[in-house]
Design a binder for these strands. Structure first.
Lengths: 367, 367
DNA sequence: GTGAAAGCGCTAACAG
DNA sequence: CTGTTAGCGCTTTCAC
């Protein structure tokens, strides 16, 4: 049995008359304030009263009206979450999961909006967050990039995820792409590879540069140097409009050219997918003849590939949590780190890499 | 310049004192009600007054307090969106996009929550929606399945997406998996294939049965019959815990056995990925020696594969929109369809299928 | 056309 | 320990 009854407003917007504090108070024979105390766990209530009221609260299934609470306390438990293009990189939605997990811990709720990248829609949603009097907001992009937020129509604390404001006005949480690139290269170097190829992200993307720097750094740390002749872009065109995968062709070039690499670092798992296809078409076995390491760790690809793909994970879930922790601190009046928080990208070892020497032997062992 | 000023509550919860109706009214030298009229586009306001008030509204950047509106009108523009495990099937988040698109058209906002499948958390979130006095709710699962919602602590209208209540108490929007399976088979049959294999979804999943029925139906319609001996599960184990891909092994069985199929229908794109790997390892070229058709249309896989994967799309975005249209109708006091709404799954033709006769010739043409 | 008064459900401040 | 009063920001009702 529900305690709500349905009625209709003139404009046919449905309305649920729900149990109120007063209802509970009346039935309990106490004042509204006492019920309020019980519901809010105020210890200054006699145990007998508390129990009696609580019983009625449960029985009537009373849930306080958040709007009324918000009005009275002048404070909101709602946080706004705004994204550009949700789900272009599928697992980036894990950011949402992470955010929600932390919000839940603080008893906050999340109002979500997705602008599709259109500035007018963004403005509309900031306004919506303002209308809700959101206590704070998180702005997330679906790939790592700088953003121009301009003058935002929202005055609460704001934390950026996967992006950063060019003017550094807001705290940001970013994947540590430089270290990630370093991790990719280091792993291959430690396996013994010396001719390492790169089929990179779209060069116009910030992560592409950072990863490249990481790869160079890893080589330097081992007293080696990365051979630029073995690097090719795996994607070209404008991101979010006409971007094209050319990793297959790039990989074929690398694999049929002189000085064929024994391992290839990929800008992401889709690129790895194409590099694997190119290897197969060149008659090379993976990892026997060619080791491949991806980026992102998109389970639908990495687990499904044969051999399963060794990759570096984008820690979206952790980034969502980290951003929310910062936001919670800001809402509570605390301070945020001045510099972007870099979240590490862990290596996920599967079956697509092995030492270069043991080629045919390793391959046989594997079968 | 912002019109908000920041202060702190005793418990350090931040609060923004924002412009109110009264502020605008005072500055405009009119009553609060008049400002309310202007903001709500009530035509019964003198044009001069309207313009003057509007100017101040813009200048002070006044946005009505949704909580106060909700209290006074006893009606909420908020809709709750609850999911089980967001992002296990990556593109299922497109449901969110679809929902949001339709909500925006109605000026509603969305409160999102994700239970991870835990019943206690679900209960917590229904409570949260109740606290917000949400006008309605959408419950979405990340793969097509029946759900036991039990007694839900929410009395507003509820629409299910990608799932249905065993007791059929709520309207549901589902992908038309039967027709989808039919589409897969029909396409191959029309290309001329007569020995069609199937590497299916986990048999415990409802869609597996429906698709199978569709495949059988397509064969019947062409006066053929589907050969059960060419069917294998591509996934085994409990979904959402220990589920394993075995499509590679299944495909090898089919491809090395007698009566080798000239085409394989896959339960989803990851399965197709493994089938493609198996084909390559058996020395078969795709589509020359073997046509492959997937399901889901996960762009990260289908566009990245070489050859690009012909597949049947799961219409998540449309499903989200359809569910929200139904919800909007219900909120407005209208009726919902009694039977689940089946959304068609369109065929997306790429490069992984061709007629069976032209094997080697087609292959050469393609290169 | 416009304004004054009342009240939605809740809690802060204070009184008892 | 418990109750009373007042008011958060808005819109409904009704009067002018």
């Amino acid at each position: 049995m529900s305690t709500m009854s349905k009625t209709l407003l003139p404009d046919a917007v449905s309305l649920f008359v729900m149990t109120t504090l007063k209802d509970v108070a009346k039935r309990a024979g106490v004042s509204a304030k006492t019920v309020s105390r019980v519901v809010n766990r105020d210890p200054l209530v006699a145990e007998v009263t508390r129990a009696a009221v609580q019983r009625l609260v449960d029985e009537l299934n009373y849930v306080p009206n958040a709007a009324a609470q918000q009005m009275r306390t002048q404070s909101s438990r709602t946080v706004g979450f705004l994204t550009d293009v949700i789900a272009t990189t599928p697992y980036s939605v894990d950011i949402i999961r992470g955010v929600q997990e932390e919000l839940r811990a603080e008893g906050r709720s999340m109002m979500i909006a997705n602008s599709g990248g259109a500035p007018e829609q963004e403005a509309e949603y900031w306004r919506m967050f303002r209308a809700q009097r959101a206590a704070g907001a998180i702005y997330a992009t679906m790939y790592h990039r700088p953003v121009d937020l301009g003058e935002i129509d929202f005055a609460g604390p704001l934390v950026l995820v996967n992006c950063y404001d060019r003017k550094h006005r807001y705290p940001a949480v970013l994947p540590d792409d430089l270290a990630g690139g370093c991790t990719q290269a280091k792993y291959l170097i430690e396996l013994g590879h010396r001719r390492i190829g790169l089929v990179s992200l779209n060069p116009v993307i910030r992560a592409a540069d950072l990863r490249r720097d990481g790869i160079t750094k890893a080589h330097k740390q081992s007293g080696l140097s990365f051979n630029d002749a073995l690097a090719r872009p795996g994607m070209v065109g404008r991101p979010g409009g006409g971007e094209r995968l050319v990793a297959y062709e790039a990989a074929r070039e690398l694999l049929t050219g002189r000085n064929r690499p024994t391992a290839i670092i990929c800008g992401h798992d889709q690129i790895a997918l194409q590099v694997m296809a190119a290897a197969a078409d060149c008659g090379l076995s993976v990892p026997g003849d060619l080791s491949i390491v991806g980026f992102d760790d998109q389970p639908t690809i990495t687990d499904a590939l044969r051999p399963a793909l060794t990759t570096v994970a984008l820690p979206y879930y952790q980034m969502g949590r980290a951003a929310t922790l910062i936001l919670n601190t800001l809402i509570a009046g605390g301070d945020a780190p001045l510099k972007p928080l870099l979240v590490p990208c862990p290596l996920v070892i599967r079956q697509s890499c092995c030492p270069p020497e043991t080629t045919s032997r390793a391959r046989r062992r594997r079968n």
